[in-house]
Write a protein that binds this DNA or RNA. Sequence first.
DNA 1: TATTAAACAGTAATAATAACTGTTAGCGGG
DNA 2: CCCGCTAACAGTTATTATTACTGTTTAATA
Lengths: 155, 155
Amino acid sequence: MSDPERRNTRQRQIVLEELQKLTSHPTAAELYDIVRRRLPRISLGTVYRNLELLTRLGTIQKLDVAGDEARFDANARPHAHIRCVRCGRVDDILAPPLDLFGGLANDSAGYQVLDCCLQYRGICPKCRGSSSSTAREPSAEEIIDRNDDGSTHSH
Amino acid sequence: MSDPERRNTRQRQIVLEELQKLTSHPTAAELYDIVRRRLPRISLGTVYRNLELLTRLGTIQKLDVAGDEARFDANARPHAHIRCVRCGRVDDILAPPLDLFGGLANDSAGYQVLDCCLQYRGICPKCRGSSSSTAREPSAEEIIDRNDDGSTHSH
DNA sequence: TATTAAACAGTAATAATAACTGTTAGCGGG
DNA sequence: CCCGCTAACAGTTATTATTACTGTTTAATA
């Protein structure tokens, strides 16, 4: 039998496909809502399981961003993110291309350093517009911002 | 009445005191276990409430580190942290003193940038020693690494 | 000291995620 | 092209960190 954990199921493929269409990094539940349009009988557990698996395989990236639910990014290469403190939305951000490892001692605090992540917090354009202090929930439609020309999703 | 949210209760004071004694940044539950030695009747909710309050006041820092429970740091100034992927322990790390805001456009991705955090992941000295792949839980005693000479806790 | 609201202890609720169970369906061998 | 095996599935339940609720206590002011 071929590599375990790599069986090509329709569910796994569609979870990945739909994630790749998004530039706003969705939560598992948000992606579940989107995937259900194509697979109405898919279960939330399957979405979680596949997102976890794809993360382990290095195909996608799990963003355990500060504060609330994990979010997922179809771009597995390390890059900085920014999270809206009002609505929780997460976007890529063009941070200075710093060498975040260069300044570290090889053996910082006795740790073997594996990787790092740089996260910003801020207020997203939509929440800046509606400048009320009430937190917003993004609607299902707002999450779907398909990236039709596939060019801007490579950072 | 004086400033609300600043009533000096024994519970709040001891929660802060015990947090300040630690260099390993504990979770709310870990700190609860420690504080209970001095206040056996304190409730977990009180620990959560005070940690949240002290964070709002800027006295301490809440570390919503990747993956699991929030951790707390008596040092509110921004500085980098490293988290052990095996046991979850979080320590300060001396990162290069980078200007993480300098390279950002004023209006990155349309966001108003508020702050940022730099987190590393790695394997802590203890988990490097016991190089088995099984995850370790730190014992209550291990969390208590009091910083008796008060000098090394300023980063 | 009396008053009053903030904070408390104890408990229940919430919500994200993981685990469990019986069923379905990729995929290599025949 | 079908068989059998097992990973993966749908549906459900359990776990766990955190928050909210309720009646009681207590710090700070009058």
